[in-house]
Design a protein around this nucleic acid. Structure first.
Lengths: 204, 204
DNA sequence: TGACAATGTTACCGATCGGTACGTACAGCT
DNA sequence: AGCTGTACGTACCGATCGGTAACATTGTCA
């Protein structure tokens, strides 16, 4: 054992860039937190699944709460990437943008393993206003509200704030009932209902 | 307190009916579970707040999960009481019934301490399909969906299932964004948006 | 070769988790 | 009185929680 330097090369492959453990941790945390919930997952399970040591977690993240916040910050980035992607697909046509977004979201909610919006779920799990994870979630939702209202203005809605908020309600409702009802649930009709709501809000 | 001859009372007052501890436990659990979340509250905190001993909890409830389910069963009863109350206030007028329900719900969401729907929150906290608390929650939501769709039929909607589901999405969205945004959030417009959606769904 | 940075290993901490074995106080009945 | 059933409390269980100290091992780069 003393001179046992040559083992399998199962660790030499990732030395190229630093903080490889942190990335694996975040990958695993993202997966487990989203699927099972943040409170349901302990740090031990994370490091065990990631195949890293616990100190590696606490060298990269100051606490579990901060790891949760990091998970949500990454979620936030990916969310807006998807959002901007569908927006860019229909330039100058906010109605088509929203409908495309909702069609895609509605489709995702029909997946058996669908677990809703990580942001929304985190806010439910952490009602305390000063929790780091909740702050990220609230920021994300505030920005979403702002954008939806702006798009309602673009659409020329008589009461743009009401329409923007109505769309947000439909979206959040889809996130929640997607995970509550599973495939075949009410979330499958979110795009159709949004279309109806938009139509009613534009007609005067 | 009509015949309250017994004094002294840290135990004499509840001899009349059995399982007084169980009631206090359920009262406290209801309050703490709703405000902070089920996973966030330990059984120790419950019994401490209730001023009872821990075995009293486990004599009345086989586990914490079962206590959570009991909390939700009570929540379910009270929910349908409120629901039936507003339905009874507008006999034969499903549109007025729903609007009245949503007006009241929308108002509640503007309370600073609002924490959403206990059913919805529990489903977010417990994604596992066989968790006792989740089962209660799913049953409640399925029944709500059924009723909303039935009311949409009563209203004479062209696509009643879509309207019923759309109303459910708005409701769930209001529950969630009520606790996410607090007063001034999108949930304040849930009744207005429902009105628009209903109008658009009835016009052909 | 030697310093450095990143990770791993092991062992631990106090607190809290959900849950229970067991003894006791007190009612009603005979 | 004596017995019995019932509701309750004290004290405790092992497991897990989030988090840390100390040190060994690794490959990289100068």
């Amino acid at each position: 054992m003393a001179h046992d330097n040559k083992i399998e090369g199962h660790k030499a492959e990732r030395d190229r860039h630093p903080a490889a453990a942190a990335e694996k941790i975040l990958d695993v945390a993202r997966d487990l937190f989203y699927r099972q919930g943040i409170r349901a997952i302990g740090v031990d399970e994370i490091v065990r699944t990631a195949g890293v040591a616990k100190p590696s977690l606490y060298r990269a993240f100051s606490s579990k709460d901060e790891l949760a916040a990091s998970y949500l910050r990454r979620y936030d980035r990916e969310f807006w990437e998807r959002f901007d992607e569908v927006v860019a697909a229909h330039p100058g046509d906010p109605r088509a943008q929203i409908l495309a977004f909702l069609t895609r979201a509605g489709k995702r909610t029909q997946t058996p393993s669908y677990r809703g919006c990580g942001m929304t779920n985190a806010a439910v799990e952490y009602p305390e206003p000063d929790h780091p994870a909740r702050k990220v979630s609230e920021d994300n939702k505030r920005e979403l509200r702002r954008r939806l209202r702006a798009m309602a203005v673009e659409m020329g809605a008589a009461d743009a704030d009401t329409l923007g908020d109505g769309l947000l309600l439909l979206i959040e409702g889809a996130y929640i009932s997607g995970q509550l009802f599973g495939p075949g649930g009410p979330a499958q009709s979110v795009a159709r209902n949004a279309e109806l709501l938009i139509g009613a809000s534009l007609a005067k």
